[in-house]
Amino acid sequence: MIHATGLVARSRTPPRVEVGPVSFSVDAGSSHALVGAPSDGVELLLAVLAGSARARSGTVQIAGAPAGPRRKLAYAPYEPVLPTVMTVAEHLALASRIRGEPFTPAADRLAVLGVSPLAMRRISSLGLEESRTVALVEALTSRADVLLLAEPLADVDPRAVGRLAGALEARVDAGATVVVTTASREDARALGRAWLFFERGKLTRRATAADPWSPPTGPRGARLFIRSEGARFLLAELSPDPTFASIQGEGAALVVTGSDPVAMANAVAGASRRANVEIDVLRFEAPEADG
């Protein structure tokens, strides 16, 4: 369904990101996760597949045609482009008309991710998480046969998180071809049936369900530095969390390591809320090489 050959792309606006040369194929009715951070080029690659970013060289064919917006392709980037002047219901109705699909009430479509109350909200009044959820609802409930979704489990309405993986799986089972990007290896495991790992713009590893992969350890693990006056309270909250491979504390500083940077950041944010502790510094550091 999707064939990328010798693809090279470079973002036109800061931060500068490059990806490629990369070649891969995605079969019809399959689900692929492009695993890596935005700085690894996965979101740029997704934009090239969607036709909203230009490749410097190489080709992309989707269902035998060059990449580009089309009625049977649904693209939900991390920052969705929505008509802010419309209500969510008006947007979904207009999207159906443009895609040439029969009308379905907005509340029914939004119910797929449990966010029906958003139907009458003006899009300009939505926060990022709600906007992203609306864009995902449009993609998931459309009849598009190719779905390109950036970080579908990150920064979405909390009501939608538990339903997203199931909704996506249902679309794949119904024959849709799905490509998602994610920086979280846990999310990648939940969303994909095949995985392409990217590092600094290069495709470093491929894996399929028949060739399962385990969370990497060692050099690819993440190391997070935290400074907080309430470090000892954070330590108590973080210690039982299996997200972290190690936790070291000294005074107001904590250094934690793990394999999933997104899960680690979320866990620290949750611990900070639960312990009611303010964090002064939170930064990822270069992981130490295995000795």
């Binding site: 917006p69 482009v81 002047v85 207009l94 443009i98 895609r99």
Partner: peptide, 16 residues
């Protein structure tokens, strides 16, 4: 919508 002509139509163009 206070944007360029291309950007103003992008919410619809991205839908095909």
């Amino acid at each position: 919508g206070d944007r360029g002509l291309v950007a103003s139509g992008s919410p619809l163009v991205r839908l095909g």
